Every structure is written in C-alpha cells, then in structure tokens.
Simulated assay, not measured.
Amino acid sequence: MTIPEELMKDRYWRGTLYLFTEHSLLQRYIATHIDFAECTIDITGLKRISKPWSQSEKFILCLALHLFNESNKVNLSDMDSLDPNNKELVFEALQLRFG
C-alpha cells in the first residue's frame, strides 16, 4: 500500500496518517478503512471495531479522526491514559496538523 504524496502534505491528512502509520494497532486498518482513491476514511467502521479497545487506543483513534475532520470530537484530557511513547506520537501528530 502506497500513501499518495499529496495526502502526506495535506494538513488535514498528514497528522491522521502519521498516527495510522506509526501506531501499531491503527496500522492494521489502513488498507481496510482508508480509501486513498476517494480520499475517505470509514469512520463508522473504525468506531465500531474500536469498541473493545483500551481507553488509550480509543483516544489515539479519536484524535486521528479529529485531525482529519474536526466534526469528530476528542477530549484532550483523555491523554492522561497514554504512556510516554503514545504521548510522543500525539504531540508529533498535533505538530503536523497545527504547527
């Protein structure tokens, strides 16, 4: 799977794609839930499969979806559940989107 270069440069996509490519759980769902040809993400499907995930895994997904489209809300206080490695991922993704 090749991610189009223009999406890696897009401010709405790059933070989202960073989280999906760098987080071991989210990596599993790139091919099945992201359509690069249509530039869409199967948000409903991802939310459905994430129901049994840990709080920190759900936070990473919610943030990735929020960075893609702000209508997907995220509670930043949920970052308290993250370990140092995941916090680093989050800070980098935020920098890519807003920096």
Score class of each variant (00 low, 15 high):
1 M>W: 12
2 T>D: 14
2 T>P: 12
3 I>D: 03
3 I>P: 06
4 P>C: 07
4 P>Y: 05
4 P>G: 04
6 E>P: 02
6 E>C: 07
6 E>T: 11
7 L>T: 04
8 M>V: 09
11 R>N: 15
12 Y>K: 14
12 Y>R: 14
13 W>F: 03
14 R>G: 05
15 G>L: 01
20 F>M: 07
20 F>T: 02
21 T>K: 13
21 T>I: 02
22 E>M: 15
23 H>S: 05
24 S>P: 09
24 S>R: 13
25 L>H: 08
25 L>N: 08
25 L>P: 03
25 L>A: 08
26 L>F: 00
28 R>Q: 14
30 I>Y: 01
31 A>S: 15
32 T>K: 15
32 T>G: 09
32 T>V: 11
33 H>K: 14
34 I>C: 06
34 I>K: 09
35 D>Q: 00
36 F>T: 02
37 A>W: 02
38 E>M: 09
39 C>K: 15
39 C>L: 12
40 T>M: 10
43 I>D: 08
43 I>S: 08
43 I>Y: 04
43 I>L: 06
44 T>N: 06
45 G>V: 01
46 L>P: 00
47 K>G: 07
48 R>W: 11
49 I>T: 02
50 S>N: 05
52 P>E: 01
52 P>M: 03
53 W>E: 01
53 W>T: 01
54 S>Q: 13
55 Q>K: 14
55 Q>R: 15
55 Q>L: 14
55 Q>D: 15
57 E>C: 02
59 F>Y: 15
61 L>V: 10
61 L>E: 12
63 L>G: 01
65 L>R: 03
65 L>G: 05
65 L>Q: 01
65 L>P: 03
65 L>H: 04
67 L>G: 00
68 F>L: 13
68 F>D: 07
69 N>K: 13
70 E>W: 05
70 E>K: 10
70 E>D: 10
71 S>N: 05
71 S>D: 08
72 N>D: 00
74 V>I: 00
76 L>T: 07
77 S>T: 11
77 S>C: 06
78 D>Y: 10
79 M>E: 12
80 D>H: 10
80 D>E: 15
80 D>L: 13
80 D>I: 15
82 L>K: 03
82 L>S: 05
82 L>I: 03
82 L>F: 03
83 D>L: 12
83 D>K: 12
86 N>G: 02
87 K>S: 06
89 L>M: 09
90 V>E: 07
91 F>S: 11
92 E>D: 12
93 A>L: 09
93 A>N: 12
95 Q>L: 07
96 L>E: 02
96 L>M: 08
96 L>P: 04
97 R>T: 14
97 R>Y: 06
98 F>E: 02
99 G>H: 06
99 G>F: 03
